[in-house]
């Protein structure tokens, strides 16, 4: 179900970046920029405007998706969405931080991000909590297959195997 091609997505990013007038409110509001001077949301948009392309440096994954920039942007540029889009492009390229691959694998096989350990199960029983109905993992598999997540996971594995 690849609804948008990467080119469409880049077009969309460019389009939504256009109203930006580089005031810097996003950067001034970004908690990540506060501790990581390498990550400036304004520059991410500026790059799109300046070069017309989307550079995937890996730094896009630093975005914590706190939405502060988007909330305050005086031109209503959807910065968080732009970063989500850039990350999707990276993911399609097989460039994904390993922790996210791990998370996606867990979801794929359990439907959850943190599968209950024996200890938690015991704890739930001790607390008198009910056993929660388990999601059908086949359904998750189907969604992964049909929405491209599986492809991306495979592509990452290939990228991993390739000698650098």
């Amino acid at each position: 179900m690849e609804r948008t091609t990467d080119a469409d997505r880049i077009n969309e990013i460019q389009h939504s970046a256009q109203p930006c007038f580089q005031c810097g409110i996003c950067a001034a509001s970004c908690p990540i920029f506060r501790v990581a001077p390498d990550f400036n949301p304004r520059m991410a948009v500026d790059e799109v405007l300046r070069t017309g392309t989307v550079a995937m440096t890996g730094r896009e994954w630093f975005c914590a998706y706190c939405l502060m920039c988007e909330e305050r942007c005086p031109m209503e540029v959807a910065l968080s969405e732009i970063l989500i889009d850039i990350k999707n492009l990276s993911a399609n390229d097989g460039k994904v931080p390993p922790s996210i691959i791990e998370m996606m694998d867990v979801i794929r096989f359990t439907g959850k991000v943190s599968h209950a350990s024996k200890r938690t199960e015991k704890k739930r029983r001790e607390l008198g909590l009910p056993e929660l109905p388990k999601p059908d993992v086949d359904e998750v598999q189907t969604i992964f297959e049909m929405t491209g997540a599986l492809d991306r996971l495979m592509r990452f594995r290939e990228a991993e195997v390739e000698p650098e």
Partner: peptide
Amino acid sequence: RVGEIQEYPHTKNLRISVEDTTHNEL
């Protein structure tokens, strides 16, 4: 452009968050 202003609880002084956009610096 100033992103936010925060107030120090005791002195009531103010802290401005702003990006110096000519130097790409918070």
